[in-house]
């Protein structure tokens, strides 16, 4: 699978941002605002709605 653009949301501060996601090579996530690692990859449908 190739990397694709997805939407992330920090569950600590609520900050949302887009970034690359590769299911075969997941990388460590850290919120660019508060540095929390509780960063959820929003489901595609939700990300598309935004």
């Amino acid at each position: 699978m190739v990397a694709k653009q997805v939407q992330f949301r920090c569950l600590m501060c609520g900050h949302e941002y887009s970034g690359m996601y590769d299911h075969d090579n997941v990388t460590e996530r850290s919120c660019p605002k508060c540095r929390s690692n509780s960063v959820r990859r929003l489901p595609d449908a939700k990300a598309a709605k935004k």
Partner: peptide
Amino acid sequence: RVDRLQLEW
């Protein structure tokens, strides 16, 4: 509420 589950490295 999803933020009741947290993850930290």
